[in-house]
Structure formats: structure tokens, C-alpha cells
Amino acid sequence: MYLLNRIQRHRVNYTWMIVSLLLVASLPFLLFLGLYLKSFLLIHDYHLGDLLFSKVWKPGSGKFGFYPFIVGSIWVTLLAMLISAPICLLTAIYVTQYTRKRFLRIMHPAIDILAGIPSVVYGVWGILVIVPFISRFVGPLFGVQTLGYSILAAALVLSVMVIPFILNILIEVFRTIPVELKEASLSLGATQWQTVKSVLVKKALPGIIAAYGFGLARAFGETMAVLMVVGNVVKLPKSVFDPGYTLPALIANNYGEMLSIPKYESALMFAALILLAVSLFFNLVMHFFIDRYNKFSA
């Protein structure tokens, strides 16, 4: 019936497992090494500080200043987090503390669908709804002339995109807080809100910070949706109504022409390397943060 006997099959399966495991475990290092080698040409010839903080981006004449892109990315990301952070926290508290379990059963599919919508579709939605909304209502409201393709538009779209991600973690965080803690607080005469405010949120604080950290890392690397609504203008944004440019958008927009100019490819790979480093850094820090917190609380 079988080609191999039991022991041989075990060996084949075992080898298959080990090879796959090594492949997966080496992935972050492979990614880093690959991108580093590719961007070596650029790092070797330029000062790292010049690359990161120079404002001039003219690949044709060999000027690669990533500062506008980094600033654009930071603006978009922080603004998006500023919008979605309170919404996620309030919603997580509401669905875990104030509603019945049944409500979570409505909320979970909704979160799943939000998480599953592809980023291009978010981009289409941004162009259809958010961009006109900004150019017609929000801009005039603040007395600003804007096309709508702006830092603000990107941040709004991005804030919706990270909601399912952050919310999932927050709901998990609030659900794992032992119920005795809440009961003790309530039995001492605290109201529900006092319990939430001074017991639950305090207890969950490291988890909340970690959720925001993961969300931030996620938002920083988001490409297509941001690319479609941010405006893609290489200059330092002065207000949220200005168009901007982000690092992922830079990579995605220029893949066609990068082979024609020397060092251009290297520069784009360097942008990818920055993204990788930011993502790894944030995730590392947040993981250690959670680990420390778990040790203390246990």
C-alpha cells in the first residue's frame, strides 16, 4: 500500500518539516540581507545622514534625499493613529464591558470583513468617498482650497484600515483581564465607569500600548490605498490638506523607471530596507514590552 515503511515515512516527513521550518525562520534575515546587499551601492556612496535628512529628490542627477518621504509617512501614520486609537479603545471597552456576548457575534464578522477588504478597494473607496468629502466639505470648512488628494485623505483611509487590526488585539486584551478584578472593584462600591477607568484600563495599559504599536507598524508600511489618495507630490507637507508622498508609495510608483537610472533601483531597495527596519523594530519592541508585562503580572 505504501511505497515506504513507517520509519522511512517518518524520516521523509521529519525532513520536510525541518527544511520548511528553517526556510521560514530564516525569512526575516534573508529579507534584510537581500535588501541590504541591493541597497549597498547607495549606502556605500552616500552618507547615511544625508540620505535620511536631505530634502532633494532628483534621481536623474543622483540626488537621493528621503526626508520628504519619511516625513510624509510619519504624518500620515501618526494622524491615522490619532483618529483610530480613541475609536478602537472606546469600542473595545464598549463591546467587552457594556454589551452582551451576543453583540460580539455581530462585531466579529464586521471586523473580519474590514480586515479582509483588499487595500486597493480601500483606495477606491478613498477616491470615491473620502477625497470628494475633503475637497467639498472639510477643506471649505477650514477655508482651504484642496483637491482632496492629501495627507488627511490618506490618514482617514488608513485609520479605517488599521481599526480591525488594533480592535482585535484590544478586545483580546480586555477579555483576558480576570473577571475577579472587576468584581472586587464593583463590590467596593465603584461604579462601572470608575471600574473601567481606574482598574481595567490601568491593568490593560501595556496591552493597549502594544496594540497601538503593532497598528502603527502596520500603518507605516501600507502601500496601495495610501498611494491612491495621498497625492504623490515630493515636497514637505505644511498642513494636512497638502498632498504628500510616503515611502511605500515611492517604491510602488517608480518600479517602472528605476532600471533606467543608475542607483535608482538601489535607492528604492533602500526605501524598502527602511520600511523593513521600522517594521521589525516596532514589532520587536512591542513584543518585549508584552513579555516584560506578562512576567510582572504573573
Partner: peptide, 22 residues
């Protein structure tokens, strides 16, 4: 291993795109 997997999960897809291209 779970930690490494979570790290890899967090990497933006454009980075995979750039890596795949190289």
C-alpha cells in the same frame, strides 16, 4: 518561533515585493 513568525507577519507587503523583485 512564534515570535519570528509574528515579526515576519508584520512586514509590509511592498517589502516582500521589493525583495521578490531583487
Amino acid at each position: 518561533f512564534r515570535f519570528i513568525l509574528d515579526l515576519v507577519w508584520g512586514i509590509p507587503s511592498i517589502v516582500y515585493g521589493a525583495f521578490g523583485f531583487s
